[in-house]
Design a binder for these strands. Structure first.
Lengths: 347, 347
DNA sequence: CTGAAAGCGCTTACAG
DNA sequence: CTGAAAGCGCTTACAG
């Protein structure tokens, strides 16, 4: 005999009130097929009994599990908490739960993670793909958050525009030689940001790009980036493609006696947790994770409603790129040292 | 009529093979009530058809959803990714999925988040409580990860011992005046770490504690911590209670021209993502998140098996505290400047 | 407005 | 070793 849940179910409520389960179900779901009077009575009684509907029963009957999956193949990415939070927020606002899955930085198992979610009956999933991975259609609708230039992307921050905003900011401050500092040239996101920066340079400005992974392959992990030397070569701005690289750049410059921002400006991307906390606080570009999450979830749910949850489609959205916003803090300032006195500096 | 899943189900497999659903079920679950020959044939056919068992059907029948909840009331805590990853790893190794829930830093809604998970039918949950929140029993088994000194804690890193390890390290390096830098005096974890540090000081050593939130309430958020002045007062070691505070301390010292580690040592806690990346890399104390996750999940599952998943119990474990490990990097060095030459420094 | 009944997909005693 | 049947809790056409 199947095990009975200890909690009350529709049948218990029904018999104790002398009505049918159908009526209880209709009353609680508020479909309006029950007289208001009776409905209120049923609702009250259910609440009193501490009734919690069985998702399993409902899912089996309706074919809808009420659960979405979130695949984060690189959970160690410090952007993750904000995005996960935003996704969870948007999903639960729509009445959905969120199952997480990650592939722990290994190579193959993105597919495995996806399969685990399918087995758990998710109606759709949001995937933040690992570097340049193409998502082959899974057995359910999929919303991809990567970068607008990735084919199949559903929604993402406009990383190019973010880069442009940084370049514009640096140009306004009078910088002419910009060192772009990225981690990995294989990242679509980082490449788009770098392109954006280059596209925003004005006549007379120039940039060079330094990829940390490439450098570390030669000099060993944790090696110096040689930024002090770059300052002496005439670089005055260090535009990092993530706050993590900005942090590395800033601490290296400071350690080597280069004062930021009076001798060199440092900027980042993403407004990660430490950016407002460090000294000097970091000028950066933030993505609107809530807008992105909202668009991803609503497009996903729309696809599920129109096409069902068993067809492997890449979800599209009307707004596929969300503006990034420049956050001016204290790590960037005028390039010309004679103007330093005009710059507000933290004491 | 209830909607049919597009995918194959047991019945489809059964009829197409001319056997009963019971036999298919037994064969696929490997309970051994079917001849090996037939079982193999069924398994092969099921795989060929791309059969995915319906969790909803199984859950309804067995009363077990195969899902656990993870409640992170402060998802912005940068420790989150590591812990979430470890929990997800341990849970999925045991065949469970993980639903996340967070309360977005608001005050009341820890309970609301917990209820959402209950409604989704989790068999149990892991809760990392917000600051000093006491978890009142939910409607299912609960494993709490906080600090061993919290009543009801299931498992946690031994934060006191971690503090002791830091103090011991600083003592070995010859430091005598230690400034402990914490964020919030209301955090159990931070308090235990501070106690641990104090307990490890040797005769002749002294410490003062600086709580950043308290200071910022007076001087405004983002204010200077005045660490350079502390150096001139004779403090040589800045023992932060989290890597985030260590980062703030380090950058402030560097900005004010104090070289680390030759003029002052800085240490942290948690080995967060940036700790090995900054210059100088950060000496810190790491918790073994995988051990903690493993213990939390296994205790939780054991309780679920013995007492069911509908009783609100606080799970206990045999090992309630996991040792923390000192990671010596370059931000800490000898207190006595004359000995600096003996210290290996990164160039 | 209310109720009786079917059925989603599964597992498990029970019978053969 | 294999099968027929019951039933987990729910929702929804259908009948009254």
């Amino acid at each position: 005999m199947p095990p009975t849940r200890p909690g009350p179910n529709l049948s218990r409520i029904a018999t104790s009130l002398g009505v049918s389960v159908a009526t209880v179900s209709n009353a609680l779901s508020g479909k309006g097929r029950v007289s208001e009077q009776l409905a209120d009575k049923i609702k009250e009684h259910a609440a009193q009994l501490g009734y919690v509907p069985s998702q399993a029963g409902r899912a089996l009957r309706t074919g809808r599990s009420g659960v979405l999956g979130l695949v984060l193949p690189d959970i160690a990415n410090p952007l993750f908490p904000k995005l996960a939070q935003a996704i969870e927020f948007a999903a639960s606002a729509a009445g959905y739960g969120v199952l997480i899955a990650d592939s722990r930085g290994e190579v193959a198992p993105q597919t495995e993670a996806i399969n685990r979610l399918i087995e758990r009956g998710v109606e759709g999933m949001v995937i933040v793909p690992r570097r340049a991975t193409r998502i082959s259609a899974a057995a359910c609708p999929v919303a991809v958050i990567d970068t607008p230039s990735t084919p199949g992307n559903t929604v993402a921050a406009d990383h190019m525009q973010g880069g442009w905003a940084i370049a514009n900011h640096l140009a306004d401050l009078g910088h002419r030689r910009v060192l772009i500092i990225g981690n990995n040239p294989g990242s679509n996101v980082q490449n788009d940001r770098a392109c954006g920066i280059r596209s925003g340079l004005r006549p007379g400005m120039s940039s060079t790009t330094l990829w940390i992974e490439t450098l570390e392959r030669q000099n060993g992990s944790g090696c110096s980036l040689g930024l002090a030397a770059k300052v002496h070569e005439g670089y005055t701005a260090f535009a990092s493609l993530s706050d993590l690289q900005a942090l590395r750049a800033l601490t290296e410059l400071q350690r080597d006696g280069i004062h930021v921002p009076s001798m060199a400006s440092v900027t980042g991307f993403d407004d990660l947790i430490w950016s407002p906390v460090i000294t000097p606080s970091l000028t950066t570009v933030a993505m609107d994770v809530h807008a992105i999450a909202r668009i991803a979830i609503s497009s996903l749910l729309q696809t599920i409603q129109t096409r069902g949850s068993r067809e492997g489609v890449l979800v599209t959205s009307e707004t596929d790129r969300v503006q990034m916003q420049l956050i001016m803090r204290q790590s960037s300032g005028p390039a010309d040292p004679t103007r330093i006195s005009r710059q507000t500096e933290n004491s």
